[in-house]
Design a protein around this nucleic acid. Structure first.
Length: 562
RNA sequence: UGGGGAGUCGUCUAGUGGCAGGACGACGGACUCUGGAUCCGUUAGCGGAGGUUCGAAUCCUCCCUCCCCAACCA
C-alpha cells in the first residue's frame, strides 16, 4: 500500500496558482543562501523544498547568493554551498546569480524611490536610529532628516555612493511610517555606507543595500513566482510587498514555512560557528556537525537526507524533530545498499587449539543479504582470530548468547567454536586470549547434528587483518543537562564524549585499500564510512555513521534496572 | 502591555462538518547464520471553556500556552 501523501500548504498554493493562471503557468523558485557559513540540514529543507517544487511542476529553481554584506561573506562559502547542493542532487543549470549582480539596478530603484519622495538620506547615527525607532509598545519618532527635499536626497545619496562620507555616518531609509506596529515598517534602512571590499564587486561600491530592499527586488528581477522563506521573515512580508508595490514592478509572493530544528544538536550558524571556533569540534565538516559537509563525511547519503525531509514535511508550526528519525532514514537506506564486512573494534585474540597450525581456509561470505545481486566474497579463516572483546563475558548474564567459558558460538560464515579456557595477563589479571576448540564438521556455520547455536559473532583472521582507526560518535548535545546545571546555554549541554577514537582495530583484508567515502556495514555494529580527510596509507580511518539497533543493549539495560 | 505566527499520541504529520489515521520512538511477540533486517501486535493525541449543529479536531466567541520582531545581519 503506497503511502498517501497530501500536499503541503506551499504546494497547495502553487497548484492553486497554476489552476488560476496567476503567473501564466510558471513556477520559478530560488534558494538564496548568504555565503557566510556552511549549509546545514536546516538549509537542506529549504533547498529540497525549492528545487523539488520546481521539478514537480515543470518549473525552475535559481541559486542566488545573497551577498549584500561584504563584512561577513567569503568565497570559500560560495564553493562549499554549491558543492553541497549538487551533492544533495539538485542543479540550478545556468541560473547561478548573485544579489551583487543587481547592485546597479538596485541603486537605480533606490533613486526612483527618492524621486517619488519614498526614501530619504538620514544622518542619524545607529544609536540614534535605534532611539527614534521606539519600542514594541511605543511608536517611533520621525527622523529630523525625514523631510529633506528630493534634490538634497538625490545629491546626498550620490555622494554616499561616491565615497564622500565615512562608514555609519548616513543611511538611505524608506519613508514609510514611524508609528507602524510592525517594526519593520518604521522607516527601515535601505542602504548603509560600508567601505569594505566585496568578494565579487571588489571596491566598486562603498554603499551596500540591506536584505529587505535587495531580496524582494532580486526575486522580482529573476521573475520568481514563489519566494519561500523561513517563518521569522513573516513580519518582513509587508516590507517585501511595499517596495515592489511602490516601484510597480513584477511582484512574486513570499511564503513562509517553519525552519527545521533537531534534538541533540544545534542548527544555527552562530552556534555552529562557536562549536568550531571554541574547539568543541574540529571543523565545519567534523562528522559530528549537522552541516551537509559533516553529514557527508559521517556517511549520510543524499537519499537518506531527502527521505528524512520528505517525512518531516513542510508546515508553519515550529517543530523540533527527534534526531532518531534522521538516523532511521539513514539505516533504512544503508541497510538496502551497504556491503556487509567484518571488523573487530576492540580485538581479543581467539586461538582454536584443535585447528591445524599454518592452515588457511577461504570461507564464502554474503555481501548483502538484502541484495542478492551484491554477490559473495572470500574470507581467510585461520587458527588465530580476533573477536570483539565485548563479545566475551566470564560471568555471562541471563540471555547472553555470546562467548563465555564453556559456551559455543558461531563465527559468522565460519565454524562453531567453544571456549575452553582463557589466558590472563599475569600482572593485571585481564583476559588477553581465549582458547577454543572448533567443530570441524560445522564449516559454514551449520552444526552437523542440527544443534541450535544462538550466538553469531563477527571475527577476522589475525594474520590477515588490516589495522584501522575507528571513530565512534555520539550526539553533540546531551539529552539532559548535567546534574546541578541549568540548561541556560547550549554550552552547558555540549556532550563531552561525543567522539571516541579507537586505534588498532582489525578489519577484514579487503578493506585495506577502501576508497575514501566508502560506506560499509560493520556486521553487528553499525554503518561506517571511510574518512576522506584522515585516511592514510596503511591505516584507514572509519567514521561510524550510525549504529545498528542494539536489542541486547536494551535487554541488559532493563536487566540492570531489575 | 504593540504587531505577526503557531497549538492533533512522547516527537513529527494527515484529517478542512460524519468511525481521529500514518511515521519515528517506546513496549511486547514471531522469525533469524548480524541480538541487524523483516513481520505482527500494544501504547498513546485534538491546549481550555462556552456556543452553533442531528453531528465539531474542523465553524463562532472568549481564554491559555509557545515562537518571532525594537542590527546600518540575513
Amino acid at each position: 500500500m503506497p503511502e498517501e501523501r497530501t500536499l503541503d500548504f506551499i504546494r497547495s498554493i502553487v497548484e492553486e496558482d497554476l489552476r488560476t493562471g496567476k503567473y501564466d503557468g510558471r513556477v520559478h523558485t530560488r534558494f538564496p543562501p548568504e555565503p557566510n557559513g556552511y549549509l546545514h540540514i536546516g538549509h537542506a529543507k529549504a533547498i529540497n523544498l525549492n528545487f523539488s517544487i520546481a521539478e514537480e511542476y515543470g518549473g525552475l529553481c535559481n541559486l542566488r547568493f545573497d551577498d549584500t554584506n561584504p563584512c561577513m561573506e567569503e568565497e570559500e562559502y560560495v564553493d562549499s554551498i554549491m558543492e553541497d547542493i549538487h551533492w544533495l542532487g539538485f542543479d540550478w543549470g545556468d541560473r547561478l546569480y548573485y544579489a551583487s549582480d543587481y547592485f546597479g539596478k538596485l541603486y537605480d530603484y533606490a533613486v526612483q524611490l527618492i524621486e517619488m519622495g519614498k526614501a530619504y538620506v538620514c544622518d542619524l547615527s545607529p544609536e540614534e536610529i535605534r532611539e527614534y525607532r521606539g519600542s514594541l509598545t511605543e511608536p517611533g519618532r520621525n527622523s529630523p532628516y525625514r523631510d529633506r527635499d528630493v534634490e538634497e536626497n538625490l545629491d546626498l545619496f550620490a555622494r554616499m555612493r561616491a565615497g564622500e562620507f565615512p562608514d555609519g555616518s548616513r543611511t538611505l531609509r524608506a519613508r514609510i511610517d514611524m508609528a507602524a506596529s510592525n517594526m519593520n515598517m518604521r522607516d527601515p534602512v535601505m542602504y548603509r555606507i560600508l567601505h569594505a571590499t566585496h568578494h565579487r564587486t571588489g571596491d566598486e561600491w562603498c554603499i551596500y543595500p540591506m536584505y529587505d530592499f535587495t531580496h524582494c527586488l532580486s526575486d522580482s528581477i529573476e521573475r520568481i513566482t514563489h519566494s519561500n522563506c523561513s517563518i521569522e521573515f513573516e513580519d518582513h512580508r509587508a516590507l517585501y510587498d511595499w517596495f515592489l508595490d511602490e516601484l510597480g514592478v513584477y511582484h512574486p509572493q513570499q511564503i513562509e514555512f517553519a525552519r527545521l530544528n533537531l534534538t541533540r544538536t544545534v542548527l544555527s550558524k552562530r552556534k555552529l560557528k562557536r562549536l568550531v571556533e571554541e574547539g568543541h569540534v574540529e571543523s565545519w565538516d567534523d562528522p559530528r556537525m549537522p552541516t551537509l559537509a559533516g553529514l557527508r563525511r559521517r556517511g549520510y547519503t543524499p537519499e537518506a537526507i531527502r527521505e528524512f525531509l520528505r517525512r518531516v514535511g513542510v508546515a508553519k508550526t515550529p517543530t523540533t524533530i527527534e534526531i532518531e528519525l534522521l538516523e532511521h532514514c539513514l539505516r533504512e537506506d544503508l541497510n538496502a545498499r551497504a556491503q556487509r564486512v567484518m571488523a573487530v573494534l576492540r580485538p581479543l585474540r581467539l586461538v582454536i587449539e584443535n585447528y591445524p597450525e599454518g592452515r588457511v581456509e577461504e570461507v564464502e561470505a554474503i555481501n548483502n543479504p538484502e541484495d542478492s545481486s551484491a554477490g559473495t566474497r572470500k574470507l581467510p579463516f585461520s587458527r588465530e582470530l580476533f573477536v570483539e572483546r565485548t563479545d566475551f563475558r566470564e560471568d555471562p548474564p541471563k540471555k547472553w548468547f555470546r562467548l563465555a567459558p564453556g559456551r559455543e558460538v558461531r563465527l559468522k560464515h565460519g565454524y562453531l567454536v567453544t571456549c575452553n579456557d582463557v589466558v590472563r595477563d599475569p600482572s593485571s589479571g585481564e583476559v588477553v586470549e581465549l582458547r577454543c576448540e572448533y567443530d570441524p564438521e560445522s564449516r559454514g556455520g551449520e552444526a552437523p547434528d542440527g544443534r541450535k547455536v544462538r550466538g553469531t559473532l563477527h571475527w577476522v583472521s589475525a594474520p590477515h587483518a588490516v589495522d584501522a582507526e575507528v571513530r565512534l560518535f555520539d550526539h553533540l548535545l546531551l539529552e539532559e543537562p548535567p546534574e546541578g546545571v541549568e540548561e541556560t546555554d547550549f554550552e552547558n549541554m555540549i556532550n563531552p564524549d561525543s567522539r571516541e577514537a579507537l586505534s588498532g582495530c582489525k578489519l577484514e583484508p579487503g578493506l585495506g585499500d577502501a576508497e575514501p567515502g566508502t560506506i560499509c556495514q560493520f556486521m553487528r555494529q553499525g554503518y561506517f564510512c571511510a574518512d576522506p580527510a584522515d585516511s592514510r596509507e596503511g591505516e584507514s580511518v572509519w567514521n561510524r555513521s550510525v549504529s545498528l539497533r542494539d536489542t541486547w543493549a536494551k535487554i541488559e539495560k532493563s536487566q540492570s534496572r531489575g
